[in-house]
């Protein structure tokens, strides 16, 4: 989520709460030794824990998107700004000390949740825009394996158009993916291939099997000549020079498929950055709330 002008009211509210909390803390801290068990300490603790729970409710809200509980964006803004307040509130609660084993663990977890949240907010602010420019062929992340499978099938068909011998049977799907090229469909079995010299056809087959196919099977392999856009461009340019003009349309399509593969690889990497921090943020947040609840019960009892 971009942090823009729409966050202003939330930011002002959070700042106001922080200023009030700080203004109350200063005389409290100078007048006595702050501790979680004092009346002001308990107020800060309850406020901090309440903000944690509120921030966590964002996850619950996402589980029930059809419930009329306010817009998800509103919940996200509250999550960000009240989540930011949890750290100062808990530090005021604890008097800037870590206490015993459980409270020390909770404080470390709080810092990690806070830092991972800040990191996530920054990533979510900048990366979506970068994604748009770096990955114009972006697809749904979860569809990447499926799309890749289809891209490989598409490339196989195109490749066979290049190097299949007269009489080879091509899959019917070929007809669907060859749009825009004036293919001769009058051959045996209703399909045919680009007419090239046998030598060129063999060369094209070798290039496809040795370079293009391995890259399409493992597009994350950075060692492939096709992993880099510049070297891939030179590679396909050389291929076009080698093969007759009738094959250039297929080569352009293969080049396009490779480019899409590279973008999907880039999308996966960016996706890991965009959502990888959640592997720290979410588990620690949940554990923090559960163990924080234990701490609250035990501390109030003792």
């Amino acid at each position: 989520m971009r942090i823009d002008r729409s966050h202003r009211s939330w930011a002002i509210a959070a700042l106001a709460v922080f200023v009030v909390a700080l203004a109350a803390y200063v005389p409290y801290a100078f007048g006595s030794r702050p501790a979680g068990g004092t009346a002001p300490g308990l107020v800060y603790g309850v406020a901090g824990y309440g903000m944690m729970v509120f921030a966590a409710l964002l996850g619950v809200r996402k589980k029930v998107p059809v419930w009329r509980l306010g817009r998800a964006q509103t919940w996200m803004r509250g999550h960000i700004w009240f989540g930011l307040l949890t750290l100062p509130m808990i530090l005021f609660h604890a008097g800037f000390t870590f206490g015993g084993p459980l409270t020390s663990l909770l404080m470390v977890m709080l810092f990690l949740v806070f830092l991972s949240g800040l990191t996530g907010a920054a990533i979510q602010h900048f990366l979506p825009g970068m994604m748009k420019s770096l990955v114009p062929l972006e697809t749904i992340y979860e569809q990447i394996p499926s799309v890749r499978e289809q891209l490989r099938g598409e490339a196989d068909d195109l490749g066979r158009v290049l190097f299949a011998q007269p009489g080879d049977i091509l899959a019917p799907v070929t007809v669907q993916v060859l749009g825009g090229v004036d293919w001769d469909l009058s051959g045996p079995k209703g399909v045919t291939m680009v007419e090239m010299e046998a030598e060129d056809r063999t060369y094209a087959g070798n290039v496809y099997r040795n370079t293009i196919l391995p890259f399409l099977r493992n597009p994350d392999d950075g060692a492939s000549v096709l992993a880099d856009p510049d070297s891939a461009g030179k590679f396909f340019e050389a291929l076009r020079r080698k093969l007759p003009a009738v094959a250039h349309g297929v080569i352009v399509d293969l080049e396009s498929i490779c480019e899409e593969e590279r973008q999907l690889t880039r999308q996966r990497r960016l996706y890991l950055w965009m959502y990888g921090w959640l592997l720290v943020h979410v588990p620690l947040s949940i554990a923090l709330i559960v163990l924080g609840g234990v701490h609250a019960v035990v501390a109030l009892r003792y």
Binding site: L137, G180, V250, V252, S256
Partner: peptide
């Protein structure tokens, strides 16, 4: 001429 079209 490229033949792939990214139609909806």
């Amino acid at each position: 001429m490229p033949g792939r079209i990214r139609a909806t």
